[in-house]
């Protein structure tokens, strides 16, 4: 057996898992608080766009003198921008669906629709091109052990994603904040009666999910690649939602589900490289498997009780 091939497979599965994991953990905060966050797809796209643009803008003055200048902080400012931007889009979703009691799926769909048109308009204004941003020179570094010919060198965001799993578990299940958030998603009236501010908790949940979705976007644009490409999320937000359902709204379950879907995706990518199957069939495999998984397992998962319902005082 060729061990290098196995390592490459595992590493690429971990890479494919990262954005799904970020987005799914984000979705966890939002849905445990009772707000369906179908806007994750759009949030990822906006995060990716913000990261690419911010990095490009920060490094631009340094590149003017030296076209290969190394600006170590530029991608990190990009990551920060993605988090802020994702958080803002999350806030927008929360504002529409909490303050105005909108149908959460419609509000999320609107944000996803906006993620088709608005990036094109912004890119046209900044780079005179409607589908890609200017490639950045300083993308996120790759760190990791010198092992197996460097296949295990990852972007720091990959590590962050996996470290976040126990943190999210701790926050959700061992802190007062987590308890309040979950109570708001299960039974808002009861939560209100013990003095928890339902709306505020829900805002926190959705904004947090936006921040994490933004991180997923940042990983796609300046971690995995070096530029923004329109619709680069390619359905990851939706697969993350499916993983959330499959993982029964629990961080550990979500980790397992995203690893599974990440493995599907990386397997599909690797299959597409050879002459085994046409790439069009390969690309649809993760989606077909996701559907099968949802049809087979969803009946036994229990969603937060108050999910999708606007809270009326």
């Amino acid at each position: 057996m060729d061990w290098l091939l196995v390592f490459t497979l595992i590493a690429s599965a971990l890479r494919a898992t990262t954005p799904l994991l970020f987005a799914a953990l984000g979705g966890l905060f939002s849905e445990r608080g009772g707000i369906v966050n179908i806007a994750l797809e759009g949030i990822i796209i906006f995060g990716a766009l913000a990261a690419a643009i911010a990095t490009q803008l920060v490094e631009a003055p340094y590149l003017a003198s030296d076209p290969n200048a190394s600006v170590w902080f530029a991608p990190w400012i990009g990551v920060l921008a993605a988090m802020v931007c994702g958080g803002f889009v999350g806030w927008l979703h929360a504002f529409i669906s909490i303050r105005y009691k909108a149908d959460q799926i419609i509000s999320g769909t609107a944000i996803n629709l906006m993620a088709i048109g608005l990036p094109a308009v912004i890119l046209k204004g900044m780079y005179d091109n409607t589908s890609t941003s200017k490639p950045v020179v300083n993308r996120l570094p790759e760190v990791g052990p010198e092992f197996a010919a460097g296949t295990f060198q990852f972007s720091p965001l990959v590590f962050l994603a996996f470290i976040l799993v126990p943190i999210v578990w701790f926050v959700l299940f061992k802190t007062p904040f987590g308890l309040r958030l979950r109570s708001v998603g299960e039974h808002p009236e009861a939560a209100e009666s013990v003095g928890i501010n339902v709306r505020r908790m829900r805002y926190y949940g959705v904004i947090l999910s936006g921040v994490l979705g933004g991180l997923a976007g940042a990983y796609l644009s300046i971690g995995n690649l070096n530029q923004f490409i329109s619709e680069m999320s390619g359905g990851r937000g939706f697969i993350a939602l499916a993983a959330l359902i499959f993982g029964k709204w629990h961080p550990i379950g979500v980790l397992g589900a995203t690893l599974l879907f990440g493995a599907f995706q990386s397997a599909a990518t690797l299959l597409g490289g050879g002459n085994l199957l046409p790439s069009t069939i390969v690309e649809s495999i993760p989606f077909i498997l996701t559907m099968l998984v949802l049809a087979g397992f969803i009946g036994r998962a229990v969603a937060p009780k108050a999910i999708g319902k606007p809270y009326e005082k």
């Binding site: 419609i106 509000s107 629709l113 048109g117 094109a120 308009v121 046209k124």
Partner: peptide, 24 residues
């Protein structure tokens, strides 16, 4: 010279968003 047809896509998305919010 500086605008694209995607402005219309944006308007459509915003219409959905604002209708969801019942026009504020």
């Amino acid at each position: 010279p500086e605008l694209t047809r995607d402005v219309v896509d944006m308007v459509v998305a915003l219409v959905v968003l604002f209708i969801a919010a019942k026009g504020f």
